[in-house]
């Protein structure tokens, strides 16, 4: 299994360096530069941000490699890109252009409704979304070196990221309190290898870094997710769908560092201009979080 693999260790280590940081969705080299200058610890290169993918409908695929390369050339921080769930050929292409992290993402249309990519076969790292502990550990067993909550991308509504983080953390606490002989049954219930459940039992955390994603739109949202146990934050549509992207991006970066300090958070939340409009949970036609379990 991946846990003993040296490449996986190095890939997990890169995620450790991203902790306490904000990863921002960008669609152009100009946006990538704004994100880097605002203090993003990495950028996610994609042709359309989730809110626009949601609005446009249709099949959503990996971005044009030329567009991704343009962003790689524009910034010095790590560059991530998305491939469809199960689409290992897209992942091979992203590896060929030396992407720093692949997001096997439910934001794009799934290419396989049964199997995820066997990520252990790749040298580049993968981050995957998860709604609960079972999904997270299954993705890690497949070779994911980083986990993020699924949330509900492109909505500007944080409720589902909160739900997913709470479910994950509560399941972790439950496993920590189990007796050792109960772990075997728990592994069976979660449909994951026993070793991963045993790791959670001993360490009280996932074996990889865990970020929040999906619906984060304000400094307060970022602080909320950090206080719930996230080790960093992805912000997709929330920045470049807002009135003043550079200022909002800077504020969210500082909010992740100072997530436990309400006084600073109050200052950071001032005068940010329009937040993205957002869609409430009840108004959504398409639940991206239900893709790929």
């Amino acid at each position: 299994m991946a846990v003993t693999n040296q490449r996986w260790e190095l890939n997990k280590n890169l995620a450790q360096m991203l902790k306490g940081g904000v990863i921002m969705d960008v669609t152009t080299p100009e946006q990538a530069k704004i994100a880097e200058e605002a203090g993003a610890c990495a950028v996610m290169a994609l042709e359309r941000i989730p809110a626009d993918i949601r609005a446009a409908g249709g099949v959503s695929r990996m971005s044009d490699p030329k567009m991704i390369k343009g962003i790689q050339d524009a910034v010095s921080i790590p560059v991530m890109a998305k491939c469809r769930i199960g689409h290992f050929a897209e992942a091979q292409i992203l590896q060929a252009i030396e992407i720093d992290y692949i997001d096997e993402s439910e934001v794009l249309s799934p290419a396989d409704d049964v199997y995820h990519i066997d990520k252990n076969k790749f040298d580049v790292p993968f981050v995957c979304g998860a709604k609960d502990l079972g999904e997270a550990l299954r993705r890690i067993a497949e070779g994911a070196a980083m986990i993020r909550t699924k949330g509900e991308p492109g909505t500007g509504d944080v409720v589902q990221a909160v739900r997913h983080m709470r479910m994950m953390m509560s399941a972790i606490r439950k496993i920590v309190s189990m007796s050792e002989d109960e772990l075997f049954e728990e592994a069976k219930q979660l449909r994951v290898p026993y070793e991963l459940v045993s790791y959670v039992h001993e360490n009280g955390k996932l074996p990889v870094v865990n970020f929040a994603a999906g619906g984060v739109a304000t400094p307060a949202d970022a602080a909320l997710m950090m206080q719930l146990g996230a080790e960093g934050v992805f912000v997709g549509s929330g920045i470049f769908k807002s009135g003043n992207p550079a200022k909002r991006a800077r504020a969210i970066v500082q909010a992740v560092t100072n997530y436990e300090n309400p006084k600073i958070l109050a200052e950071l939340s001032e005068d940010l201009g329009e937040a993205m409009v957002g869609i409430n949970e009840q108004e959504i036609q398409l639940l991206m979080a239900e893709r790929g379990k």
């Binding site: 450790q16 991203l18 902790k19 880097e36 203090g39 610890c41 790590p78 970066v253």
Partner: peptide, 13 residues
């Protein structure tokens, strides 16, 4: 360790 651009910027701010 981390991203030097981020840390440097926050050191200033």
């Amino acid at each position: 360790g981390g991203e030097s651009t981020v840390q440097g910027k926050l050191l200033r701010e």
